[in-house]
Amino acid sequence: MPEVNSNSSASLTPQYFGSWQSYQIPFIPEEPISKEEAQQRKSYYVGYYNSNNQLERFEKYLDGQLNWKDEYLYWDNGNIKSRAMIKSDGSRTVQNFDRQGRIIK
């Protein structure tokens, strides 16, 4: 079965948040805020959702600079397929998940 591919990042609309819930993959952003309010904060988060309302990218900004981001791909059943964690220095760590959403070690 095919995976759900990412939409072009240009077609995804950013949504701004003040925080996120407990550690869960993918993250669950909370405390929606406006872009203007976000830019006045020391830190904030930006989430990008696909047409299936799945979080495809989640970024943390600190002092106006990208601090880290997560990128997600999903199986066609809606479960997470992979997570790429990218730090500000460009280093990347990838986690893969089976069709049930369990991490593959």
Rank of each mutant, 00 (worst) to 15 (best):
S34I: 09
F17Y: 15
M1A: 13
E3F: 12
Q40T: 13
Q95K: 11
L66K: 09
R41L: 15
S51N: 15
P29H: 01
E59R: 04
Y49C: 08
R99A: 12
S22F: 05
W75H: 15
K42R: 13
Q24V: 12
I80S: 01
Q21K: 04
S34R: 03
S82W: 05
F58R: 01
D70Y: 07
S8H: 15
K69H: 12
Y61M: 02
P14T: 02
S34F: 10
K87G: 14
M85P: 01
R41D: 09
F17S: 02
F97H: 09
E3C: 06
I80F: 00
K60F: 12
R57P: 07
T13F: 10
I28D: 03
Q100W: 03
E3I: 13
Q65G: 06
Y72S: 05
Q39L: 07
S9F: 14
R41M: 13
G64W: 04
G64Y: 06
I103T: 09
Q39M: 09
N5V: 13
E36S: 13
G18F: 01
Q40I: 04
Q21L: 11
D98I: 11
N53G: 00
S11M: 14
N50V: 05
S9H: 04
D63S: 10
Y74R: 00
N96C: 07
G101Q: 08
Y45Q: 08
G47A: 14
P26H: 05
T93G: 00
L66T: 07
Q24A: 10
N79R: 08
K69C: 11
A38E: 02
V46E: 05
A84V: 14
Y48D: 01
K87D: 14
S82Q: 08
E36P: 00
P29T: 06
G47L: 08
Y49A: 03
W75G: 08
E59A: 12
Q65P: 01
E56M: 10
S82P: 02
D70K: 00
S6F: 01
G78Q: 08
